[in-house]
Every structure is written in structure tokens, then in C-alpha cells.
Computed example of a mutant assay.
Amino acid sequence: MPVASKDKYTAKQKRKAQHIEESYEHKGMPEDQAQARAWATVNKQSGGGERAGGSGTDTSGREKQTARSDSAKRAAQTRKGHARTSPESLQSQTRESLMKEARSQDIRGRSRMTKAQLIEALSHAG
């Protein structure tokens, strides 16, 4: 099996792979298999060598705020301008979302209700 270049990995990822490889070799695993498993583990944990820590690109607070705002706008658009507790809006929400709304309005028996029953209860409560 050809060994790929490890140049794109951070020093921390390389140290982690070396430690894992040594651990496998200590348990009696052949060196090539131990190395393959070590790098597979590092890749799984950190997402590969192009991202330090595997968290993807760094995102500034401003970019995160914009992303949240855009997400909220898309969510509002899916309700097609209806009031949050209108039957049309309630139909487009997930059961989990309806449960949160029912919890905030303290609707009794909500945990045993189906989605249709939650919609009915919320439309009468709102």
C-alpha cells in the first residue's frame, strides 16, 4: 500500500499518530498495519490533514452571526409569512419544534400527543 505524504498534517496530528502507532506496535501489531490504523484514527478524529484540529475553516463571530441571521430568514420564509402559531406555520414545523412551543405554553398532556394533536392544541392555545 503506497504511503501518502503527511505534509498537510499539523505537528499535533503527527505526534498523535506516532503515539497511536507505538501503542499498536507495543501490542504486537506489525509496523505497517499499526501505521495505517494510527493515521486512520487521526483522520477520523480530526477530518484529515488540511484542517488543523478538524474544525474546518476558522469562522469569525461576524460570519457566524450572518449565518444565523440567514438561517432565521430562511426559516421564516418557509413559514411563508404566516404567524408563528397559524395553522399553516404549525404544519410546516417538526414535532420537536411543536413540543417546544407546547412546553412554553404549558399545554398539559403534550408528551403523549401526536403532531396533529399538538397542532390542534397550539392553534387553540394561541
Rank of each mutant, 00 (worst) to 15 (best):
H19P: 05
R108P: 06
E88W: 10
R15C: 09
E96W: 03
H26D: 15
G109W: 01
K100C: 04
E22H: 07
K12W: 04
S86K: 03
A17H: 01
R74M: 09
G61H: 08
Q65H: 07
R108M: 07
T66D: 11
R84E: 10
Y24R: 07
A36C: 08
A67M: 11
D106N: 13
T66V: 15
A38E: 03
I119F: 00
Q33C: 06
P87M: 05
E88C: 10
G109R: 03
R108V: 08
K80H: 13
A34S: 08
R62N: 13
W39V: 00
R51C: 03
E96Y: 07
Q77I: 10
D32M: 11
R84K: 15
R62K: 14
E21Q: 15
P30G: 09
G47S: 13
T41Y: 13
Q45R: 11
G48S: 12
G53K: 10
K64L: 11
A116P: 05
K73P: 04
K115N: 03
A76P: 05
R74G: 02
G109E: 05
S23W: 00
A52G: 14
R103Q: 14
R37P: 03
Q117Y: 09
Q18H: 09
P2E: 09
L118D: 00
L118V: 01
S97L: 06
V42A: 01
I119K: 00
G47H: 06
E22A: 15
Q45Y: 06
H19I: 05
A76H: 11
A102K: 01
I20N: 02
Q105P: 02
E22K: 14
E96T: 12
S86T: 12
T114C: 00
K115F: 01
R62M: 09
D7H: 07
K6T: 11
P30M: 02
Q33A: 10
A17W: 00
P87C: 02
A17F: 01
A4M: 05
K80F: 07
G56L: 08
R51T: 09
D58H: 11
M99C: 06
T114A: 05
R51S: 11
L90V: 08
S86D: 15
Y9P: 02
R84N: 08
T85E: 07
T41P: 05
S89Q: 03
Y24L: 09
D7V: 07
Q18W: 08
E63Y: 06
G47A: 05
K44G: 12
Q45E: 15
H19W: 06
M29R: 13
I107L: 02
K44R: 15
A102R: 01
Q93N: 09
S5Q: 06
Q33R: 12
S69C: 04
P2I: 04
N43T: 14
E22D: 11
K115G: 01
N43M: 04
Q33E: 12
G54K: 01
T66N: 12
W39F: 04
S23H: 07
R108H: 08
Q93M: 15
Q35H: 13
